[in-house]
Design a protein around this nucleic acid. Structure first.
Length: 280
DNA sequence: CCAAGGCCTGAATG
DNA sequence: ACATTCAGGCCTT
């Protein structure tokens, strides 16, 4: 067996991609859209809906990807240290709302906010003798009042959430067709959703729309680039404007290649662990 | 096109 | 205690 077929469930879930997950004995259990997944330590998935979800992107050729992104010693160190770290394939709508909620916030609060949203608007179900709330569908969230959404603790993001949900419900934004579109078309499209800028868009594309060249540039990644890549990606300005972001992204894809998003995930995981940041 | 400021919220910091 | 800062940005001016 190839080493790179390994799935490290723990690391993959604890890498800032998902928020509605908890450890339950030997299993990880979490809400993914209209489904609840239960995953054992080998990555075997049981699901409430009995849907086949490729949550771990098993068709990605990790041997090839790791070879491709290993352009420098920082990434080589990270991929070695976090063998089995995967990009997860999430439900796109939950992913969209999750990262709208994430902006200018922190992991702990994002998690609480999303739990509140699920509890308030999601369908209550029972799965393996436990109670869960599915993530609400676009129609339910789109029809909720701003006050109801605000009561989940999301503050000024409430109106973004409502509008975003309506854009999905009305099919003004259609995830299934975006999965087939290229990176730039997709980005342009989802950046038209209120509350979605460059960083949030890249998260949605990487974690739910199969755009592996997406490379979310958040505060942490900028720090990482300054720390380890000041020669390659030096930038004059402190605040990154939209143009700066795009220029930087182009340089990054030039350096890491078409699977740059995987490089991002390994680097992000490594640096956050260094500072002992909590994930869930 | 860029820079600066404001923004819900609540945990952490001083 | 109480004020200020900060957190996985985005939008408006």
């Amino acid at each position: 067996m190839q080493e790179n077929c390994v799935i490290n469930v723990e690391n993959s879930i604890n890498s800032g991609q998902v928020f509605l997950w908890k450890k339950n004995g030997d299993y990880w259990v979490g809400v993914n859209g209209q489904d609840v997944l239960r995953i054992d330590k080998n990555g075997i998935i049981e699901s409430y809906q009995n849907l086949k979800t490729d949550f771990f992107r098993k068709n990605d050729d990790l041997d090839e990807i790791i070879k491709s992104i290993s352009k420098d010693k920082t990434v080589r160190k990270a991929v070695k240290k976090y063998v089995g770290l995967r990009i997860l394939k999430q439900d796109p709508f939950q992913c969209l709302i999750s990262f709208i909620v994430s902006s200018n916030s922190n992991i702990q609060k994002i998690k609480t906010n999303l739990e509140n949203i699920s509890r308030k608007f999601g369908t209550k179900i029972e799965f393996e003798n436990q109670e869960f709330f599915l993530f609400p569908d676009p129609e339910r969230l789109g029809k909720a009042s701003i006050n109801e959404i605000t009561s989940c603790g999301v503050g000024y993001r409430a109106k973004f959430i409502k509008e975003a949900a309506n854009m999905i419900f009305s099919k003004e934004i259609d995830f299934e067709s975006l999965k087939k579109s290229n990176y730039f078309e997709t980005k342009k499209s989802i950046c038209s959703i209120p509350g979605v800028g460059n960083k949030v868009a890249d998260c949605i594309m990487l974690f739910s729309l199969n755009k592996l060249e997406a490379f979310p540039l958040d505060r942490w990644m900028i720090r990482i680039l300054e720390k380890y890549y000041s020669n390659e990606f030096y930038s004059e300005t402190k605040t990154i404007t939209e143009k700066q972001y795009n220029i930087l992204h182009e340089k990054i894809v030039n350096h890491f290649g078409p699977y740059a998003g995987y490089a991002q995930q390994f680097l992000f995981k490594m640096e956050r662990e260094k500072y002992q940041k909590k994930w869930l």
